[in-house]
């Protein structure tokens, strides 16, 4: 059940985000319960120490190192190619990884990816030696273009960031997964476990989610649910679902039924 990205084998197909958790302790419980081996972090300015400020309770960076979880820095909050590229380069320096979840966001209302900037930044970062995992629209053509410039995976959204609306365009997600030669990771929009299972059933190779877990009433329990859902969806996809039918189809044999009252036996009723 490993997921291979850029030659690295990950033991879980669930990629977790760390945004939205109320505390590092709550985050730790959720990360462990999720079984994730790859987890996003954001890059932000360090806070200057203030006299009388409470002591730092440790960093998410230290937490991931302690749990043995690979960090996937993101370029969240970047609205231009220039910002995203600089943020990726800072992340490479700070986190010691050339993997980056590339986000170039169009505006702070929709939080949708800017397709033009995304492709340009992806191209630049791939040329600079990065392993680029772009957060992209649910557009099969854009996914193909991102793959063409050398992205190591494509990560289409199910629904807008933080919306929890699930997969709004399953046909597009399925088309992206069917055509891709790199892993497809559904990113954003997951609200509950069935959404994660659906992503896998549609052919995605993995699921990335954060707030569906971190803002759930019981994050640890939801993290476990997501782990099981991703595994269930993966197995269901691999098992091959039955075709959908317009009519009912009996599963018990029609032959050999007994006669009761006026009804003769073995009537060809599908029951």
């Amino acid at each position: 059940m490993t997921l291979s990205i850029a030659g690295v084998e990950l033991g879980s197909r669930l990629v977790m985000g760390t945004g939205g958790a109320p505390s590092l302790m709550a985050l730790e419980g959720a990360l462990v319960a999720s079984g994730t081996e790859l987890t996003t972090v954001a890059m932000r300015r360090v806070a200057r120490p203030r006299p009388g400020a409470p002591a730092d309770d440790g960093s998410v960076w230290g937490l991931l190192a302690r749990l043995g979880i690979r960090a996937l820095p993101n370029t969240a909050g970047c609205f231009s190619v220039r910002e995203a590229v600089l943020t990726a380069r800072l992340a490479r320096e700070a986190c010691g990884t050339d993997w980056v979840k590339l986000e170039v966001i169009a505006d702070d209302v929709t939080l949708l990816p800017d397709p033009v900037g995304l492709l340009e930044a992806a191209d630049e970062l791939v040329r600079d030696g990065f392993v680029v995992l772009p957060y992209t629209n649910d557009d099969p053509v854009l996914a193909r273009r991102l793959e063409d410039v050398g992205c190591a995976a494509v990560m289409p959204l199910g629904a807008p960031i933080g919306s929890g609306l699930g997969i709004l365009n399953p046909r597009n997600i399925e088309a992206i997964a069917a055509a891709a030669r790199v892993p497809v990771i559904l990113d954003a929009g997951i609200g509950t476990a069935s959404d994660a299972a659906q992503a896998m059933e549609l052919g995605c190779d993995g699921v990335l989610l954060a707030t569906a877990v971190t803002r759930a009433a019981d994050p640890v329990r939801m993290a476990r649910a997501m782990r099981l859902a991703v595994e269930a969806g993966y197995d269901a996809r691999g098992a091959g679902r039955i075709p959908r039918r317009e009519q009912a189809l009996a599963s018990s044999p029609p032959d050999g039924r007994m006669a009761v009252g006026d009804r003769p036996g073995n009537l060809d009723l599908a029951l």
Partner: peptide, 10 residues
């Protein structure tokens, strides 16, 4: 000068 570090996010 920008001095940045990894924080919770994404």
């Amino acid at each position: 000068v920008e001095v940045v570090t990894a924080v919770q996010g994404g």
